[in-house]
Write a protein that binds this DNA or RNA. Structure first.
Lengths: 232, 232
DNA sequence: AGCGTGTTTTTTATCTGCAATCGCCGCTGA
DNA sequence: TCAGCGGCGATTGCAGATAAAAAACACGCT
């Protein structure tokens, strides 16, 4: 059963003096959730968190409300705020939506990406290959996020990018780190290469197929991992 | 310049006693915005609105914060809350994302829709044809929303449906009612027929193309309308 | 008149407090 | 022993008060 969780690294929250308090809190809590400092299903105690951040409960409540819309927490009336649990069904759904967004993005990117952007992506891709060759999985993982984020930015459609990011965040709530062994990394790199090919050739059809496929392969990979270790 | 707006129909807010106050306020304000009772760019005065609803500013603020995430309002620190203005570029972006979601949905619907759901859609489609023949545009408009919402529900992917709805709401902020003359209605009906054909045949490819195209035609229609009456 | 500046007023940002609700725990009686 | 039931502490829901910021205003100067 969900129990109240107070994060270990209790720091009183830092922010630029101009930045609105509520936003700072929101980002902070968001990070805590995505990093898994508060486990899925865990409860956020208003008083305790407010105390930890040295802010009032009001500010904290406002911040947490916004996280509800982005799907990171669930609010049960009179019960409290809980880090959302993403079911397998929901995770699969998220992958499908994400794949659709990727497809849309792929088409746009192929049409719009500038040479400078393509150069950035290519160079990042090279860095990722290096990380793979060094078998540095966690570095690859971080670079991978950057790569996707850069990719989405190249679509020139901000809403598209922000929705994609939101869904990626939500997906983090479904079991920690599926992406693991280096064989999977290699597949991922090949996918990226195909996407880059499409973009470089400014071929919308090729790019959209490659990007969508990349996400759907991720979904498949998750399913494979799951059936390998069904319950934990 | 944006000026504070106090809606005309100042009703003190009704809700089921169990429903959380903040949610009720949120939905109410959302409706007010989508219905255009508060014009795009208009300012929401916290005190005035709280007064009107007979609630505290705290509750109102919490509610409005959530609307920010869904893109209906913009919050300027220390300045206040404004109904979001959607630029032409943003509207076009929204259409692109929406079209992508529609495509994804189309594929899923063709694969998953039950006979009962197909029957419902078909019957609704017939009702819409009747509304068109009666030249009842506003009725058609309402039915159209129901049709799309039913459609998305058939995808069996809740997140997909909710994102689609969110984007549709956002699009309402870009100039009022583009969908107008009956020639456009006829095109819309033909689109719907094609989508239904795809679904009935359980043909994912056909359905996804038809649904995506339907949205992109809407985008084109908006552009046409705009170039007809460039500035207002 | 136009402009800069100090002052008042309005509005927002945040905090504190009280009331309502929930969950837990121990009691009671079968 | 255990299901039912108050009572009580913990926690959330909501309201109002205070502090801080911005906007509106008014004045005097050029």
């Amino acid at each position: 059963m969900p129990r109240t969780v107070i994060a270990d690294n209790a720091a009183p929250l830092e922010r630029a003096p101009t930045e609105p308090l509520v936003e700072a809190i929101g980002q902070r809590v968001e990070r805590m959730i995505i990093n898994g400092e508060i486990p899925a299903g865990g409860k956020l105690n208003e008083y305790a968190l407010a105390q930890q951040f040295q802010v009032s409960r009001t500010a904290l409540r406002e911040a947490v409300r916004t996280l509800e819309r982005s799907g990171l927490v669930t609010i049960l009336p009179n019960r409290g705020v809980f880090v959302r649990r993403v079911s397998l069904k929901e995770a699969l759904d998220l992958f499908d939506v994400r794949a659709g967004l990727a497809r849309t993005a792929g088409r746009l990117i192929a049409a719009r990406a500038t040479d400078a952007q393509i150069a950035d992506l290519t160079s990042l891709h090279a860095t990722m290959i290096a990380a793979w060759e060094a078998r540095d999985v966690s570095r690859y993982y971080a670079l991978n996020q950057t790569f996707h984020s850069l990719l989405m930015a190249c679509s020139g459609n901000e809403r598209l990018a922000s929705l994609y990011e939101m869904l990626s965040n939500e997906l983090h709530l479904f079991r920690r780190r599926n992406l693991g062994n280096s064989a999977q990394l290699e597949v991922s790199i090949q996918d990226h290469a195909k996407i880059l090919d499409g973009i470089t050739a400014h071929d919308p059809g090729k790019t959209e197929r490659a990007f969508e496929r990349h996400i759907l392969m991720g979904k498949q990979r998750m399913l494979d991992t799951l059936s390998a270790q069904p319950e934990e």
